[in-house]
Design a protein around this nucleic acid. Structure first.
Length: 921
RNA sequence: UGGUGUGUAGCUCAGCGGGAGAGCAUCCCCUUGACACGGGGAAGGUCGUAGGUUCAAUCCCUAUCACACCAACCA
């Protein structure tokens, strides 16, 4: 039994009331569960979520990416794909470890004090808490994730995948351990990725220092921003062509503040214009100097230790912190008269992204992945189009990095992460790398083996996400069904960190039988960055962070989702303001009320054609299509148009296009025009009422379907409120496996019918709207209240149109509030003053006497007259150019000629109207 | 230094070869039986600047300015 209307839907859209309940309902009904194997004839669709870090709460960027992914997922699911959107979280090594350390510090505890095992227990507890919080947030947003498949980058299965990959790469000779220069975070006490070092502009001082020639009075001036490293200099360098220093070629120099002698080397790398043109070379503490040193065979001399303090090699400065050593060196140089001058400059200093402290280039023993062999096929996959990027220009960014890619340092001196599966032998120093924890050294058999203390870079494991989450290295059904995944949706800021690594790993480990690598996905969609309303990056320090949950709380998840979708087409930045979200809340409310309108109408009906979704209505409309009124045919035509537009947008990752099409259709076409049209036949009863009610029902259902991927909550709530006859089979939009978008495509049925094309309902309604708009415009301009009624004179130019307009007469009267329509009165030109003109088939007159202030109307008509004259002039001008007639397409010339004729008539009529009006007293 | 992107109505953005559109904000009218989170109307733009191509340019090309981001070896 249906409930009374009042109970079916509340007074207005109140998302809080139903959103949370609906998600539980979907969960209970297992709407988002993917099957391990496709049904016969079914295809799969899969997106793996970019796993959020377990460090904290979700921000607006997460809201955006998950909204987009959910829209794509729900759309495919509704089309009948076996759809999997796989959830999970990332352990995020450095980020999480430092968060937990911070927390411990507040409690007066420390990592070291706890020891590795106890510390890791703390982190796991943290992880559990945050992962479940993240899950709640994603659910609040409406994300249709298959939670039964939730993964974590350090869960048991995934750890096995990581170990497998490490061992395989090691066995294949693609992982090695060696002493190389890497970026080191003194604060975090670990190696960090080059990508985690952000070159940041800083005010620095450039010190000019004298380096004396050995056994002579001559010297060379060297400019440096890091004087403390001079203790580790092993050469000075000048440009070979630099005339100033040619006399010094072959000489040796004394390192200031020490007794060491170093050579002068010549290298074109040196920029003659900078500083003094002389460069000090410190191969142990600078990337460029390191390369220079390698090239010229210079020794390494480490004067700064991993602890950030000067080493014993720094002599008198040993034990000092870097900054302390720097000022002491400057002091000593000054005392010895070796400091020539000090310059203020702005240069870029590498800052560790995580700690905000200066990253130090250091020589250190680390694990590396030999990248060349992995990178090559990854480049090819994008070159050949096996993987596409949207927007396409990101391809270039990808290539640029991939062509210049360097070996990947994968070890980190952290505790939180995948500990490297390598064991060092105490006796013979051999390294044993194994999948299963070994009992003895693989070389000498000694039982004195100890596992490497380092953990792997987080991105090493994230790189395996598309197949590790599906059960690899086991040969699972899920892997077979869902790998390769369909789309990767993420931010452009992690193209290098993550996207490139996944492509490399996927191609290397997932192979076809012929050995060809299978890329982890074929489409990469990179969304824009969400900024605040001023276009600034949201950050905690700026305090401009908009919390998605706060917005959801206020305006509903749907409002936020639709806002984000509608703005997602933008290239790089999305400026989000709270106002926009409120606008879309209004949209949801509009939709809500449109459905409520249907309920008011339906309630009076005894039974109806809605046994199943779209079933009854659709059949009725197909069978009776040619008998439908113009208005009903028209809205079906517009629905079809909107459907095509929405699909195009979804296919091409233009969600803004889809959402705009939906917005325009729902609000302007369905609500503003169609429902207004529908009121009349619905009131009249009889046959007109029935077909209109059915059309309205069908269009509303279809609209809910189209909107569902974007605003799942409100559409589901409204869907469930529709008058289903068999309550126990009420379908949910979220699970319904019917290819919903397909069936609502009237196109399939009507496209074959010539009648559809030739009916011209679009043209008829265009004309009808034109008449109504003209009268409204007349009222508006003259401030005429709707209560004031007046007759409308129409001159119809075609017999066919006259017949149609007579059918539509009541609509015109209702919507214009005119008292009556008088056709083709011979008195028109005498009695009425022309008010306006519609497009082509109708001329429209209104008697001004007693309605309008003469001055106002004079102003109005003058305005119109001027505009028409200008337009006419423009067209005439265009048509008078011989080149235009000769070279422009004939269709266009014909169109312009017609326009000229129309405008000429208009100008004439308006001129007459003006003259007449002026004569009036 | 190089690369990429952006510059269109007061604001946020669509459009991208035939004389510009939306939403919000503004102004005016309307509490009409879905909706005031509403309805109707109006006003508002030499489409960053300068050249070029074309019958035709907001849209293509070149240069230039401004802003943003990315990649970088200037100590």
């Amino acid at each position: 039994m249906r409930k009374p209307v009042g109970d079916v839907l509340g007074k207005s859209y109140e998302p809080k009331v139903f959103e949370a309940d609906l998600y539980s309902y979907w969960e209970k009904e297992e709407c988002f569960k993917a099957a391990d194997e496709n049904a016969p004839g079914q295809e799969s669709f899969c997106i793996v979520i970019p796993p959020p870090n377990v460090t904290g709460v979700l921000h607006m960027g997460h809201a955006l990416t998950n909204t987009i992914q959910d829209i794509l997922t729900r759309w495919k699911r509704m089309q009948g794909f076996n759809t999997l959107w796989l959830p999970g979280t990332d352990h995020a090594g450095i980020a999480t470890q430092s968060q937990v350390e911070k927390k411990l510090a507040k409690e007066g505890r420390s990592r070291k004090e706890l020891g590795r095992k106890a510390f890791l227990q703390e982190v796991w507890a943290w992880k559990e808490e945050h992962a479940s919080f993240i899950k709640q947030q994603l659910q609040r947003l409406g994300s249709s994730l298959d939670w039964s498949r939730e993964r974590f980058t350090m869960d048991e299965g995934f750890s096995a995948a990581v170990r497998e990959v490490f061992v395989r790469l090691y066995e294949d000779g693609l992982i090695y351990r060696g002493e190389r220069m890497i970026n080191w975070s003194v604060a975090l006490q670990t190696a960090i990725s080059d990508l985690e070092v952000i070159p940041t502009e800083r005010k620095s001082q450039l010190w000019h220092i004298k380096y004396p020639v050995s056994g002579g009075s001559d010297y060379i001036v060297i400019a440096t921003t890091r004087p403390e490293t001079l203790l580790g200099d092993t050469a000075v360098a000048v440009h070979p062509e630099d005339e100033r220093y040619k006399k010094l070629h072959g000489k040796k120099f004394k390192v200031p503040l020490s007794d060491r002698e170093i050579p002068l080397i010549l290298d074109e790398y040196v920029d003659r214009e900078f500083g003094s043109g002389g460069l000090k070379v410190t191969p142990s503490h600078d990337f460029n100097d390191y390369e220079l040193g390698k090239k010229h065979g210079l020794p390494l001399m480490t004067v700064i230790g991993l602890d950030g303090k000067m080493t014993a090699a720094a002599g008198a400065y040993a034990g000092l912190k870097i900054a302390e050593a720097r000022s002491m060196v400057i002091q000593d140089l000054t005392d010895q008269g070796l400091l020539v001058k000090t310059e203020e400059i702005v240069n870029k200093v590498g800052i560790c992204q995580r700690s905000g402290t200066v990253a130090e280039p250091m020589i250190s023993k680390q694990w590396f992945v030999k990248i060349e062999k992995l990178a090559k096929p990854a480049i090819e996959a994008v070159e050949t189009g096996a993987i596409t990027f949207t927007p396409e220009n990101w391809k270039k960014t990808y290539f640029e990095w991939m062509y210049n890619i360097k070996d990947w340092c994968i070890s980190r001196q952290l505790w939180w992460g995948h500990q490297i599966p390598a064991w060092h032998c105490v006796d013979c120093s051999e390294i044993t790398v194994a999948r299963v924890t070994p009992q003895a050294c693989s070389k000498c058999g000694s039982k004195g083996i100890k596992q490497d203390e380092d953990v792997l870079d987080t991105w090493f494991s994230s790189g395996l996400w598309p197949f590790g989450t599906l059960g690899w290295p086991e040969k699972t059904h899920a892997l077979k069904t869902f790998y390769p995944t369909s789309i990767l949706e993420t931010g452009f800021d992690i193209i290098f960190f993550w996207v490139a690594r996944m492509i490399m790993m996927g191609l290397y480990f997932m192979k076809e039988e012929n050995g060809k690598g299978i890329p982890p996905f074929s489409k990469v969609y990179l969304h824009a960055m969400v900024r605040d309303e001023k276009g600034e990056k949201m950050s905690k320090t700026k305090g401009n962070v908009i919390d998605p949950l706060g917005l959801i709380e206020d305006d509903g998840a749907d409002s936020l989702r639709f806002t984000l979708a509608s703005m997602s087409g933008q290239g790089r930045d999305i400026k989000l303001s709270v106002d926009r979200v409120e606008d879309y809340r209004a949209f949801c409310n509009k939709l809500w009320n449109a459905v409520k309108f249907f309920h008011y109408q339906w309630d009076e009906e005894q039974g109806g054609p809605t046994d199943e979704p779209l079933g009854g209505s659709e059949k009725y409309l197909k069978d009776n299509y040619s008998k439908l009124s113009i208005e009903n045919q028209w809205i079906l035509s517009r629905l079809q148009n909107a459907t095509l537009e929405v699909e195009k947008g979804l296919e091409n990752f233009e969600l803004n296009r889809s959402s705009q099409a939906l917005h325009t259709f729902t609000w302007n076409e369905l609500c503003d025009w169609y429902i207004e049209f529908a009121k009349l036949p619905l009131r009249e009863g009889s046959k007109a009422r029935k077909q209109t009610l059915i059309t309205l029902h069908y269009v509303l259902e279809s609209t809910l379907n189209l909107l569902h991927p974007f605003i799942p909550f409100v559409t589901e709530q409204l869907w469930l409120s529709l008058p289903w006859k068999k309550a126990q089979t009420i379908p949910t939009r979220a699970r319904d496996k019917k290819p919903a978008l397909e069936t609502l495509m009237f196109q399939k049925f009507y496209q074959s019918s010539e009648a559809w094309r030739n009916l011209g309902v679009e043209a008829d309604i265009y004309e009808l709207k034109g008449i109504i708009e003209n009268v409204r415009n007349f009222r508006g301009e003259n401030n005429l209240s709707p209560k004031i009624e007046f007759p409308l004179y129409l001159k119809i130019n075609s017999q066919e149109w006259l017949q149609k307009i007579k059918v539509l007469e009541k609509q015109i009267l209702t919507l214009t509030r005119c008292s009556k329509i008088i056709y083709d009165s011979p008195d028109i030109t005498q009695e009425a003053s022309k008010s306006a003109l519609t497009g082509c088939a109708t001329e429209l007159y209104i008697v001004l006497e007693g309605l309008v202030n003469k001055e106002e109307e004079l102003k109005r008509i003058t305005k119109e007259f001027t505009k028409a004259k200008q337009d006419l002039e423009f067209v005439t001008n265009k048509l008078s150019r011989p080149d235009f007639i000769a070279k422009a397409p004939p269709q266009l010339v014909a169109k312009e000629t017609q326009k000229q004729t129309e405008l000429t008539g208009q100008v004439k009529d308006l001129e007459a109207a003006l003259a007449k009006l002026q004569k009036r007293s």
